[in-house]
Design a binder for these strands. Structure first.
Lengths: 334, 334
DNA sequence: TCACATTCTTGAAACGCTTCATTCCGTTGC
DNA sequence: GCAACGGAATGAAGCGTTTCAAGAATGTGA
C-alpha cells in the first residue's frame, strides 16, 4: 500500500480511503490511485485490514454433509441472502465428524468472521462450541444453549403430512420405517405419523426401527416386511428417501407385488435424485434454501445490532410432493 | 493475549510460544498459561497472527458447482490430504457464475490463504484471475496460462472406454449423444468414442448434438432418435449420466422397446444416484477424490518450496462401471 | 566458589492496514 | 482584503499477533 501511495504521489491514508470511502476522495485523485493499484497489481491484505478495522465481511458455514443436497440448498440460500448484503460465505465441510466440526468452528472463530452458521451433525448435540464472541445461528438443529438462535424444519409436521397423504389415499395398514430413534428428526417424523393415524379411525401404524437411513437399511427393513408377509401393510412412511428407495427395490423384486398398488411408499428429504429413480418417490420436501436465507437474515440482524434480538428458533414447514410411489400410473413427470 | 499474559504472570511472548512452540516453554509455565487461556476464554486472533507471521494454514477451494457430486468428491479428496499436512480447506461455491468465481478468487487472495485450488466453470476459460502472488492449482480444467499446474481427467480415454464397452458387447450402430461441442469435455469424449469406432471394423457412430447435458436434453435427443426410427441404433454413448437417464426414460415409454436388449446406453460421471435410477446406468467414473488429493499435493509442493516444481498438468484416467443399462439382467446390484 | 553452557523468559520491533485529529488550500461572504 | 468555511489530503497511532536478540535463571564441572 505504501508502494501504491508513493507511485500515485499521495499519502497512505488516501489510498485506504479510495478503497473504502471513495466519496472522501476527489475524482482525479481516485483515478490516479486506482491506476497505480492496477499497474502495481496490488492486492489488499485482508488480515491487516480486518485487524485494523476490527470487522470482517465474511460469514462461515460449518456444514455437516456436502453429499446431502439438502445441506447444499441451505448453503445456496444463505449465500444468496448474504450476497445481497455485500457479505461472503465460506463453507467448511465436516463430513459428519464431530472433531472436524469442532475444529472448523474454532477456525472460523479465530479468523474473526462476522458470524457463523452451523448445520451440525445430527446425532450428537454434546459440547459443541463455546462460541462466545461470534454471532452464531444454528440451521437444521435446535440450539444447544439458550444463547443462540436457530432455524429448524417442523419434522413432526412432515411426518404428519406423509401419513396423512397415505391415509387420504385410502391406506389403513401403515408401517413406519426409520431409525435409529435417538435421531431427533426420526423420532419427530414418527410422532407426526402417529398423530395422523390417531386422527383417523380404523388406521393402524406399526413401527419398524432401522439402524440407519440409507438404502441398505431400507432394503433390510423391506426384507423383514416381506418375510413377515408382505400383505400386512398397504402403506409405508419411510423416514428418508434412501430408505424408501431401498424398500422399493426389494418390493419390486417380489413377483406379483406392485408399488404403489399393493403398497404405497413415501420418502423424506426430496433428495435431488428421487424424482429420477426407478419409481419416482413421493416425498416430504424441506425448504433448504429458505432455511439458509432465514438463518442468514437472523445472523445479519445479530451482526448489525448485537444484543438486540432475543434468541429464538423459528420452524419452517415442509411440504409434500406426491409422485408415482403413491399415486401410481396417475402420476406423470412434470 | 496481553490479558492472558498478565493473568498468568508471564510475558506476552511466552504466551505466543506456548501456543506455537510449546517445546520452548517449560512444562509448568505452559500449564499455567493454558489454564489462563481456558479461564479467560481467549481465542487467538488469526488476522493478527497471519499478519505478523506472514503465513496462513488454510487453503481456499473455488468450486463451480456444489450440486455435482463430482465436485464434492474433489473437495473431499483435497481436504483429506490437506488435513494430513495440518492445513484446512475452505470452500467457496460459485454456482457456475463467472462473476462470483472471480470475486471468490479475489476474496481468497486478499485473505492471504496459503494456496488456492480452483475447479472452474467449464464453458468459460476467459480472463479468470491474475492470481500472481498465491500458489494456485487448477482441478478438472487445463490451466489457462503456462504459470499454473493442473489436474485433469483424460476425457478422451473416457469416451473411448464407453464406446469400447458397447462394441465389446457386440453393438455396431452407435450414437453419440451430447453437446454443446464447445464444451471441451464433450468434444473430448466424442473424440474418444470416435477413436474406438475407428479401431473396429463394421461399426458406425452417428453424432446427435444436444444443447446441454441435463435430463431434458437427453429426453429431447431420445425423442429425435425415436422419431427417426428407433431401430437405427443399438448403442448410445451419452456424454453425461443425466443425458443417459433422459434417454432411458423416453425409450422405456416405447412399447416393445427394451434397454439394453434393443439399445444399450452408457452415461458419464458416475453421479451418486445413477446406480439407483430406474435402469442403473453404466457409466464412466471420474476419480474425483484422487483428483482432489493430487491437486492438493501439487499445491502443497508449491507452497513449501515455491518456484521449484515446474508447472505441469497431470491427467488421471477414468474407468468404466458397467450396470444394467448395458449388461441387462446379467447385472446384479452389489 | 567460579566460569561457562544451557534452558527459559522477556519485551520491543515489525506486519500492513484503518482511523481520525490535523493541516492545507481554494472559496465565499462581508 | 480578510476571516471564516469546508472539502481534500495527510500521517501517526493503533489493531493483536510473531519473532528474535538479549537477559535471567539454572545447572555443570573443575
Amino acid at each position: 500500500m505504501a508502494d501504491v501511495a508513493r507511485h500515485a504521489g499521495v499519502a497512505i491514508g488516501t489510498v485506504s480511503n479510495t478503497l473504502n470511502n471513495p466519496d472522501k476522495v476527489s475524482e482525479s485523485t481516485r483515478r490516479r490511485v486506482l491506476a497505480s493499484i492496477a499497474e502495481l497489481g496490488f492486492v489488499r491484505n485482508d488480515a491487516a485490514r480486518s485487524l485494523a478495522a476490527g470487522s470482517s465481511t465474511t460469514v462461515g458455514l460449518v456444514l455437516a454433509d456436502l453429499d446431502n443436497s439438502f445441506f447444499v440448498d441451505i448453503a445456496r440460500g444463505a449465500e444468496s441472502l448474504l450476497r445481497q448484503h455485500g457479505m461472503n460465505l465460506l463453507i467448511a465441510n465436516t463430513d459428519v465428524d464431530p472433531a472436524r466440526e469442532q475444529r472448523n468452528l474454532e477456525l472460523f472463530e479465530e479468523s474473526r468472521v462476522a458470524g457463523i452458521l452451523i448445520a451440525p451433525t445430527p446425532w450428537v448435540a454434546p459440547r459443541l462450541p463455546a462460541v462466545r464472541s461470534t454471532p452464531l445461528v444454528y440451521v437444521n438443529a435446535e440450539p444447544i444453549d439458550a444463547l443462540h438462535s436457530g432455524v429448524v424444519v417442523d419434522e413432526r409436521q412432515g411426518g404428519y403430512l406423509a401419513a396423512r397423504h397415505l391415509i387420504d389415499l385410502g391406506r389403513t395398514r401403515l408401517a413406519f420405517v426409520g431409525g435409529p430413534f435417538l435421531l431427533n428428526a426420526v423420532a419427530a417424523r414418527h410422532e407426526g405419523a402417529l398423530r395422523a393415524v390417531a386422527e383417523s379411525t380404523g388406521v393402524t401404524l406399526e413401527t419398524i426401527e432401522t439402524r440407519g437411513v440409507n438404502i441398505p437399511h431400507g432394503r433390510q427393513a423391506a426384507r423383514d416386511i416381506v418375510d413377515g408377509g408382505a400383505g400386512r401393510f398397504d402403506g409405508v412412511v419411510a423416514a428418508s428417501d434412501l430408505l424408501a428407495i431401498g424398500c422399493i427395490q426389494v418390493f419390486d423384486e417380489q413377483p406379483g407385488f406392485n408399488v404403489p398398488a399393493d403398497l404405497a411408499i413415501t420418502g423424506y428429504d426430496n433428495n435431488h435424485f428421487v424424482s429420477e429413480s426407478a419409481t419416482p418417490v413421493s416425498t416430504i420436501a424441506q425448504p433448504g434454501e429458505e432455511m439458509g436465507r432465514v438463518a442468514a437474515q437472523m445472523l445479519i440482524n445479530q451482526i448489525v445490532e448485537p444484543g438486540t434480538a432475543l434468541p429464538r428458533t423459528v420452524a419452517l414447514v415442509p411440504h409434500l410432493i406426491a409422485r408415482r410411489s403413491t399415486l401410481g400410473e396417475a402420476w406423470r413427470r412434470d
